[in-house]
């Protein structure tokens, strides 16, 4: 479903050019749960941003569901972000002034969905993350863990091809992290494709495969042994 070949991203600031990604090639199948690990500055976020069409690679190819993303224009990229990608950020990135239902509806607004359908679908995904009763509240009124669950609901609302999560538990305590990861696990079971960046071994353990980055290169891949406590649930 996702195939990248020789993906390279070079940041140019003035005369200095910095290669944040160096010829990364990897394929991710539909329904996979992949974790991305590596030291700070190794290019994990850059990789995810390219996958999420927020950034264009300097060279290399990127196929998303059999279409070559680097050939798309700006509006088409926006459409891909809207329809095929669901982002979950470390800092949640909800709009604090809008209520939770409205936050979740937002991607559907840009998809041009009618109001009634938006409402229905937003309530559905909020129910999925267990926060339907908070629909009328605003993000500052709920906890960090709950905010991240709202963000996941928002990522799901347009039924994207893949969920891209950049350190989604980075700002959460262990209890909230477990809650959030339980949702990811559930989504994975239901067949959602997930790519998740993390620093933590325990979080990466939820994934079936781990990609290790260092200095912009994909240096190692690992298939996780199924942890017993995850399997038991």
């Amino acid at each position: 479903m996702i195939t990248v070949k020789q993906l390279t991203k070079v940041y140019q600031s003035g005369k200095i050019s910095f290669p944040a990604l160096k010829e990364v090639s990897v394929a991710i199948e539909k329904g996979e749960f992949v974790a991305v690990m590596g030291p700070s500055g190794s290019g994990k976020s850059t990789f995810l941003n390219v996958l999420g069409c927020l950034d264009r690679p300097t060279s290399g190819s990127y196929f998303l569901e059999n279409s070559e993303v680097s050939l798309l224009n700006e509006d088409e990229l926006a459409r891909v972000r809207n329809q095929k990608i669901g982002f979950v950020f470390q800092t949640f990135n909800l709009l604090p002034r809008l209520n939770i239902l409205r936050n979740v509806e937002l991607p559907m607004i840009y998809a041009g969905a009618p109001a009634k359908e938006r409402r229905q679908r937003a309530q559905e995904v909020l129910n999925q993350v267990g926060l339907l009763e908070w629909a009328g509240h605003r993000p500052p009124e709920i906890s960090g863990g709950e905010r991240q669950r709202v963000a996941i609901a928002r990522a799901l609302v347009n039924q994207p091809a893949v969920i891209l999560a950049d350190e989604p538990t980075g700002n959460l305590d262990s209890h909230a992290s477990t809650e959030v990861m339980t949702i990811f696990k559930k989504l994975h079971r239901q067949g959602t494709t997930i790519v998740l960046v993390t620093h933590e071994q325990e979080i990466a353990a939820y994934a079936r495969r781990i990609l290790f980055f260092r200095d912009g290169q994909l240096i190692k891949e690992e298939i996780t042994s199924v942890p017993p406590e995850v399997n038991n649930q």
Partner: peptide, 16 residues
């Protein structure tokens, strides 16, 4: 600025 970034990430086109 951040709000604009969020909207763009969620699929807003520049013209939106």
């Amino acid at each position: 600025t951040r709000e604009i970034g969020i909207r763009l990430a969620l699929g807003a086109r520049r013209k939106d």
